[in-house]
Amino acid sequence: MGAVTTDRDEILQAVSSAVLAVTRHLSVREVLQVIVRSAQRLLDARYAALGVPDDDGSFAEFVAEGITGKQWDAIGPLPRQHGMLGAMLREAAPARLPDLRADPRFEYWPKAHPVMKDFLGVPIRDGEQVLGIIFLANKRTPGGFTQEDQDLLTLFAAHAAIALTNARLYERGRELAMLEERNRMARELHDAVTQKLFSLRLTAQAAGALLEKAPDQAAVELERVHRLAGEALAELRAVIVELRPAELDRHGLAETLRKHVRMLDRLHPSEITFECAELPPLDSAVEVAVLRVAQEALHNALRHSGAARVSVHLSFEDGRLALTVVDDGRGFDPAESRGLGLVSMRDRAESVGGIMAVGSARGEGTTVHVEVGV
């Protein structure tokens, strides 16, 4: 009896450790990876994978352990919801098989796919909703997976569902916070600058009306236009500095952007890299403008381009700071684009005396390049 209790305690401790490992991570993709690694280690399986379904008959996320990157490249695209994976999503019930290939629900593998024999799959559920399926194959211990293994994986999947739900809620909360920040910025800009620009417009109209009839008065009004324009620019710069992210004060532009790229690389399936040369001290407004352009360019690449790889590069040479964001996505025709935030990105660059160029073509990716004299 004592030995049975000890074994049970060890199993529960292993489950607890695995779940705690999951809950320490907040990004969805990182949670998925830790769930798979923990399940593989917990049940001593050679292969482990977890798929999160999308609405188009494929998988929005699919992570695996036991398969090398080279093997993945040879296997090809993410699996679709066919065969055993599709059956498990439809049936939402555990499956334990001595030989996966002998089951009538099995269809086929891609040519480069490793051979899997004994199989254990369990749905990850939130109530009636199936968040995904986790499955293991080729148990290292002879004899295949047991009923005890199935019970353990089911218990682990129930706890993992909580961690995965929390990670999704965190990401949604973060997106809402970013949206609120954008809305707040719009309100700040409106309150601080709109009145000044309205006065500028009226004064310019008055100067135009007086230009022929009273040129001396027109010159006075134009001088006022010049003064108001300077004040509006100063107000705008003050708002930009006020809205400066706290990370810039703590870490500077390079490290703030590095951390942002690292976070996005964890959250998205695309490979996102960052390179930076040594930078001199930068003006606050320049740091904010370049950071916001980089964030917008990354947002476009990850949300709209379907890119597999995105690179961000910061450099400084001959008194000029340069930002380059390149993706290998589907591209677009810049002449036909009215969205993607290109106007706001260009406005941000020009607000600090910079220039922005966008190079893209359909099927050939996109490059966003910004240069600012510092």
Score class of each variant (00 low, 15 high):
A112Y: 03
R303N: 13
A18W: 00
R182Q: 12
P79F: 13
S270E: 03
G365C: 13
V358N: 09
L211D: 15
D265M: 04
A232T: 02
D327Y: 04
L179E: 09
W72C: 11
R227L: 12
A64T: 13
D7V: 03
P281N: 07
R8P: 03
F156H: 06
G121D: 11
G354L: 11
V225K: 03
V63A: 13
R266H: 12
R201I: 00
K117Y: 11
E30R: 07
M88I: 04
A357M: 03
G127S: 06
G57L: 12
E371Y: 00
D249H: 10
R303M: 14
L210H: 08
R187A: 12
V372T: 07
E247I: 14
F156Q: 11
G69W: 00
F332I: 04
N138P: 10
M116N: 10
T203C: 09
G69R: 09
Q129Y: 07
A297E: 10
Q81G: 05
K111E: 15
R258F: 07
K111P: 03
S58Y: 03
A349H: 02
L233N: 01
L131M: 11
S17M: 06
Q13G: 14
D265T: 08
V312S: 07
T5L: 15
P53H: 11
L267C: 15
M88D: 09
L20N: 07
A207Y: 01
S17R: 14
P215F: 08
G143T: 07
E175D: 10
V22P: 01
L228E: 06
R174E: 15
A14Q: 12
T273F: 05
H304Y: 15
R224M: 10
A277Y: 00
R237G: 05
D191R: 03
T23H: 09
A192K: 02
A18D: 01
K111T: 07
D118F: 01
G363H: 01
G341E: 10
A95C: 12
M356C: 13
H159A: 05
R362K: 09
T366A: 15
V15P: 05
I75A: 13
I162H: 04
L153M: 12
L248S: 11
S344F: 03
A322V: 08
S284H: 06
M1F: 05
E65W: 05
A157T: 07
D149G: 09
L152W: 02
L164T: 00
A361F: 00
D328K: 11
P94F: 05
L12E: 04
P123L: 10
M345S: 08
A254N: 02
A349K: 02
T146L: 09
P114G: 14
S58L: 09
H159F: 11
M84D: 10
A294W: 06
A157H: 12
K117S: 13
L210E: 14
A232K: 02
L321F: 01
R184E: 01
S344P: 01
V343D: 08
A232I: 02
L222P: 07
L26V: 00
M1G: 13
P110F: 01
H304V: 08
